[in-house]
Design a protein around this nucleic acid. Structure first.
Lengths: 203, 203
DNA sequence: TATTTTAGTAAGTGCTTACTAACATACAGG
DNA sequence: CCTGTATGTTAGTAAGCACTTACTAAAATA
């Protein structure tokens, strides 16, 4: 168990509640009273831990930034077949997005409030993804498995398809998308992208 | 010139200013004072036209719903080569998104305020796109030009790539994306998708 | 046992907000 | 010149907001 959780349970509770309410109501819409109630503490206690609502918001951004999403699984992936590798990457990508759903909602709706800070978070998350994926594509190109294409844009196209799906499913809450659909979407999207980038046509 | 603009210039001014500020500041963040100032009228005049801020917001949603995006150009497209057709579709799609940028921002950040209303807007826009595109794919499949794939998911994958690009460029305001990049992104994405769905491999 | 830490309760401050009321002005048509 | 209509100006109200102060209770710690 992490030290911060063990040593500062109240602080953790406040941050968690703040993340939830900021993502649902926006910065202005989430009141300190509501955050305190959600955290199960008194409002004044919130101000003992965070000098202002503004600072609390900043700390939420800092505490819940993104995890490294793909780097960990890249070694395994290089030994897999291309289509399987893409499937694993897509799955992992969607899992990460779902985990950080609240955080992503904040970056989308509060972008005007803290542009620099949010850009930093967003960029550090995305650029790691894109470059990791691009270098994988490059290696596959060198091995003659993939055709020539702009690997960075290829990565963006691939992840973009899935981000839009995630956006529709989780952020816009379109109920059309059921849990079971995800597997089919991944399969279909990966199939198209595989055929679009593999050197030898599959069918 | 439309009758509503000629007959009710003040009302129009208020709606336009409200759209701008709601999209930039969110529903709570946009104050009636600011909206009035942006419209160049007195705050009290706003309440003469709209009984409450809530009603004004509803009318903004109703007034600025989406345009038909693709249907008009489908006849022309059917006579074009596949890759060129996709290019035109992508361009038109991005143009429409850009035109309705403010409205899309509202649907993304205020979705929890009017879930049903916003879903309706979103769905009426997207479902027309998806079905139109899917029926185009189906016809191309019947002609033996495209390979077999789920045409609805194919359309979602295709437009999803470009929505994510739009999202990064316009909504997240990533400055990396310059105006000139758009043409290249379209070209590269279309190339991948074309190769992924055409029956005969291109390279 | 004495002290410190961590939390709560209650009350209130000063500011901003959506919204209203009363009156003034400008202007068009008869 | 009179009158109706659309707007502006000014001054408000009631509520909600972030945040503070003062005091208390209990538990941990020394």
């Amino acid at each position: 168990m992490s030290s911060s959780e063990a040593l500062q349970p109240t602080r953790k509770k406040i941050l968690k509640a703040a993340l939830k309410l900021f993502s649902r109501e926006g910065y202005i819409g989430a009141t300190t009273r509501d955050i305190a109630r959600e955290a199960g503490i008194a409002e004044v206690t919130l101000f003992r831990y965070f000098p202002s609502k503004e600072k609390l918001f900043e700390e939420v951004l800092n505490s819940y930034s993104f995890l490294p999403a793909l780097k960990g699984i890249m070694p395994d992936i290089k030994r897999m077949h291309y289509e399987d590798a893409l499937t694993v990457i897509a799955k992992r990508f969607l899992e990460t997005l779902t985990l950080r759903k609240d955080m992503i909602r904040i970056t989308q709706s509060e972008i005007h409030r803290y542009p620099q800070k949010i850009h930093k978070l967003y960029n550090s998350f995305l650029s790691e993804l894109f470059t990791t994926l691009a270098s994988y594509f490059e290696e596959m190109q060198k091995q003659g498995i993939l055709k020539k294409f702009d690997t960075l844009l290829g990565g963006r196209a691939f992840l973009g398809m899935f981000f839009s799906y995630f956006n529709a499913r989780e952020l816009m809450m379109l109920k059309k998308y059921r849990v079971d659909d995800t597997a089919m979407v991944i399969k279909e999207y990966v199939k198209i992208f595989t055929a679009g980038t593999l050197k030898e046509a599959k069918s």
